[in-house]
């Protein structure tokens, strides 16, 4: 028996919105500690990892660990029948569920849907706990804007960290550009820029993955970029009181 109730159903909709362009079919894992999801994009360049802790739910029960294979596209069709202010409850009765039930509650209506589940034998990657040598925390809308703007100039974006801060740069056929974001310790947390640089990094990534994933900036005013030289970078959006949504992205290397 599994039941998880989102106080703020809009949050769940934003999460699905952020990952729908990156992953097609995912295994939603539920157990006593909460809900998690890990899935790679078709080209195995990016990996989406969601972690939602049971304490963040209005109601949460999961007697036995469950794996529910679902199509993100079909999940979206069901979620489109809910309002952004609805409370959303996920529920299933059986131990080997073939459907996942959804209840959307608002003050003037209640809706029930069932999504057919699928069995997905997806390869799970072991993501090692890494000590990253550069960790940058910055406003998520700033990061989104920089990726969108520089992404217009070149499909690969460079990220260079130093004690002074973080620099994004592009070198394309039409020309080149760079954006250096200054560290600031303003008392407004959503505008703060912090850099912990033990070792500077200089990495290159396909910016389209950033632009697809940055819909997640609706989840949090801050984004955390964790990097080590020649390692996948992690973009993390903290989901207040619930957990986090992460994107791991493999770098492009100078061949």
């Amino acid at each position: 028996m599994f039941e998880a109730k989102f106080e703020d159903g809009g949050l769940f909709k934003k999460i699905v919105e952020a990952i729908k362009e990156l992953v097609k079919n995912v295994n939603l894992e539920a157990n006593g500690t909460g809900i998690s999801l890990q899935a790679m994009d078709t080209s195995h360049v990016a990996l989406v990892a969601l972690q939602l802790n049971e304490k963040g739910f209005k109601k949460y029960r999961c007697e036995k660990s469950l794996t529910m294979g679902l199509s993100i596209e079909n999940l979206q069709k069901i979620l489109k029948c809910s309002g952004n202010d609805d409370q959303i409850t996920l529920r299933t009765q059986d131990e080997e569920p073939t459907t996942l039930s959804f209840t959307f509650e608002s003050k003037n209506r209640i809706s029930e849907f069932q999504l057919n589940l699928m069995s997905l034998d997806q390869e799970q990657l072991g993501v090692p706990d890494t000590e990253y040598s550069s960790v940058v925390r910055m406003p998520s809308n700033e990061f989104t804007k920089i990726c969108r703007e520089l992404g217009n100039i070149n499909e690969a974006i460079g990220i260079e960290t130093s004690k002074e801060g973080i620099k994004f740069y592009v070198k394309g056929d039409i020309g080149e550009g760079q954006v250096s974001v200054k560290i600031n310790d303003t008392e407004k947390p959503e505008e703060r820029v912090e850099c912990e640089v033990d070792e500077p990094v200089n990495l290159s990534f396909a910016v389209r993955y950033f632009n697809l994933f940055n819909k997640a900036s609706a989840l949090s005013s801050q984004v955390i970029l964790s990097m080590s030289q020649d390692q996948p970078l992690v973009i993390e959006y903290i989901i207040e009181e619930m957990g986090s949504l992460k994107l791991y992205l493999a770098p492009k290397i100078n061949d």
């Binding site: 790679m40 080209s43 195995h44 360049v45 990016a46 990996l47 390869e123 799970q124 990657l125 072991g126 993501v127 090692p128 690969a156 290159s204 396909a206 390692q231 996948p232 791991y248 493999a250 770098p251 492009k252 290397i253 100078n254 061949d255």
Partner: peptide, 14 residues
């Protein structure tokens, strides 16, 4: 040019 790597090169199969 820059060659795109994939995650299997960094993360092990679980």
């Amino acid at each position: 040019g820059y060659m795109q790597t994939i995650l299997q090169g960094y993360f092990s199969q679980a």
